[in-house]
Each structure stands twice: as structure tokens, then as C-alpha cells.
């Protein structure tokens, strides 16, 4: 892999082909349940690949990422229900507020190391939940927010199009998010954050500022996560503190880790597989998080390097097999 700046031509071609295929997919996938599945894949894909930016590329042990999603969700919910702000503007507000919150949380972790970063970011997530629950007059507390207004497109009814509208909105978010994340990791900034992750002393000695890079990375990883949270609110039309819970956190985290960290596309692939699997067993009730939890542990035990590592290992084995057959 070259260490150049910018996205290569082959990758741009790949992106365009991928986007076109996904854009044409609803013509084949008519069933609204399958479209719903893909929408969930897109949402979780955005969140997981954004998380990969902070956790994988920058090596910031950020475990408050789902709180950023929740902030996007509740920003959208509160802005539309309490303040009556237009859903489209509330969507953007979700992204902006999540980015601000991420910048705020970067301040104390700039000087922290390792496990303390985990603890502070995790505690930040818990604080957001406690604030939401305690301000139940506005947020609905444990009951959550219901009947959140959704997007309005003139001349189109989003509720009666077999989820076609939501599909395209989610797809646009996913495409923007992926391009944004790839641009970030391929930019000078991306090189700098990787340099910081791999050798902090060397990087700082070359004049890379830790604080500024970490702040920008955290904010960058929050923008589309917040937008995805807001979209989630518009899509489901309710908001609850479940999105902060251990089950969803584990699911999303496992997408990042199974995808193999520092591979934006890996998390997207893992999001596809895990979302579909998780939705397929939605009928299991409380057994569902148990099955997912056991599965995650088993995969981590078998392939601590992640799904990407497993695929790479399989590819190596296949190549070896191919060689053997080629030269009997």
C-alpha cells in the first residue's frame, strides 16, 4: 500500500461502481423488509466505519462512540418535537452537535493514555444516558421520545414508498460518509494520525501536534455518526436510551473489530454481515444479544485479528493450494 496522499484512481472507480450498484439495488429488492435490512446496514456501516477512524486509525480508545450516535438521535428528536425545527435542519444539527460533543470529550483525553481514555469516554456515554433519563420532562426518560416527525419531501410520501425514500437518503449518507472517511485517512492529517498511533514520540518530534490531530479525528468521526443517529430518529420516529446499551455497543464494536481495525471498508463489510445476521435472529428476543455475544467471543478467540485477518488467512491458504495444484 502506498503512503501517498489522496484517493487513488482504482479506488474511485470502485467507489463509483459500488454506489451505482447500491443505487440500482432497489429495482431488484422490492420487498420493504429487505430494504429495511439494507437501511440498517447503511446506518450501522456509517457508525462502525466512523468508529474505525478514531479507534483504528488514530488509536484513540474511544468507547463513547455510541453516545455520539445517541446525541445525534436525541438532538434530532428534541429539535423536531420540542423546538419544531425542520427535520432536514435537525438532521444537520445532529451531526454538528455530535461533532461538538466529540470535541468536548477530546479535551480531557488529550493527555490521557490507554485504559484511562477507555474509562473517560465510557463514563461520558454513561453521563449522557443519566442526563437523558434525569431530564425526563423533555426526553421522556426511560420511556423515550415517541412520535418524532420525519422528513418531508414535497410531492412524495416517505411512508408509502416501500422505504424507497429512506433507502436513498441512507445511501447518500453512507456514500458521503465513506468518501469523507477515506479522504480523511488518505489526507496529510490521516498520515499524521497514523504516525502518532504507531510512534508518538517520533511523530511529535517531527512537529505533529497530538492535541490538534486527536481533536480533529474525534470530531471527524462524530459528524456522520451524529447524522446517522438523527436519521435513525427520523426513520424509526422514536428515540430511546437503548442505543447507549451494552448490546448495541457490543454489536457495533464487533463490526469495527471483526472488520479488522484500520480498514474503513472492512467495517462496512462486517456491518453488512452482522446487521443481516442480527436482524435474522431478531425473533429470539433476549436470546439474540446472547447469541451475538457468544459469536463475537468465538470469532475473537479464533481470529483476534478480525474478519479481515480471517479472509487474508483464507486467501493465503487458497493461494498455497493453487500453487500446489499448479506445480504437481
Amino acid at each position: 500500500m502506498s503512503m501517498g496522499v489522496g484517493i487513488g484512481r482504482r479506488e474511485i472507480t470502485g467507489m463509483v461502481v459500488g454506489a451505482v450498484v447500491l443505487a440500482l439495488l432497489p429495482m431488484v429488492v422490492q420487498d420493504s423488509y429487505y430494504r429495511h435490512l439494507l437501511i440498517m446496514v447503511f446506518i450501522y456501516g456509517i457508525v462502525a466505519s466512523s468508529w474505525d477512524l478514531s479507534l483504528g486509525y488514530a488509536g484513540i480508545f474511544n468507547f463513547g462512540h455510541m453516545a455520539l450516535f445517541g446525541i445525534g438521535l436525541y438532538t434530532y428528536g428534541l429539535a423536531t418535537t420540542l423546538l419544531g425545527i425542520s427535520p432536514w435542519i435537525a438532521l444537520l444539527a445532529g451531526g454538528v452537535l455530535a461533532a461538538l460533543a466529540a470535541a468536548l470529550i477530546s479535551l480531557p483525553i488529550l493527555r490521557l493514555k490507554g485504559i484511562y481514555v477507555v474509562l473517560v469516554t465510557f463514563a461520558f456515554g454513561q453521563l449522557v444516558v443519566q442526563l437523558i433519563i434525569s431530564q425526563s420532562d423533555y426526553t421522556g426518560g426511560n420511556q423515550g421520545l415517541v412520535r418524532i416527525p420525519s422528513f418531508h419531501i414535497p410531492g412524495h410520501n416517505l411512508m408509502r414508498d416501500h422505504k424507497l425514500g429512506f433507502y436513498y437518503i441512507a445511501l447518500i449518507l453512507l456514500c458521503c460518509s465513506t468518501v469523507f472517511l477515506r479522504l480523511m485517512v488518505r489526507s496529510r492529517l490521516g498520515l499524521a494520525i497514523r504516525a502518532l498511533r504507531d510512534n508518538e514520540e517520533y511523530a511529535t518530534s517531527r512537529g505533529i501536534s497530538i492535541s490538534r490531530q486527536r481533536l480533529i479525528t474525534m470530531a471527524g468521526s462524530a459528524v456522520f455518526t451524529g447524522l446517522a443517529g438523527a436519521f435513525y430518529g427520523a426513520y424509526f420516529r422514536n428515540a430511546s436510551t437503548d442505543v447507549f446499551g451494552a448490546s448495541l455497543t457490543t454489536l457495533l464494536l464487533s463490526m469495527v473489530l471483526l472488520g479488522g481495525i484500520s480498514t474503513i471498508y472492512g467495517s462496512l463489510l462486517a456491518a453488512l454481515l452482522l446487521t443481516i445476521f442480527s436482524e435474522m435472529i431478531a425473533g429470539l428476543g433476549a436470546w439474540r444479544p446472547i447469541v451475538i455475544g457468544v459469536l463475537i467471543i468465538l470469532v475473537m478467540l479464533a481470529y483476534p485479528g478480525g474478519l479481515y485477518g480471517a479472509i487474508a488467512a483464507a486467501a493465503r491458504a487458497l493461494r498455497r493450494l493453487g500453487r500446489r495444484q499448479a506445480s504437481p
Binding site: 480508545f61 464494536l253 444479544p289 446472547i290 455475544g293 467471543i297 483476534p304
Partner: peptide, 20 residues
């Protein structure tokens, strides 16, 4: 990467035990 791996496996265990 033991710290990171243990975070995910203990979180998964938390989810398993809570739902159990």
C-alpha cells in the same frame, strides 16, 4: 492488543450475562 480485545470480550460477556 490485549487491552482492546479484553474490552470487547468483557463487554460481550456483560451483554450475555445481563440478558441471561
Amino acid at each position: 492488543d490485549v487491552v482492546l480485545l479484553a474490552v470487547i470480550t468483557t463487554l460481550a460477556a456483560a451483554s450475555i450475562f445481563e440478558n441471561g
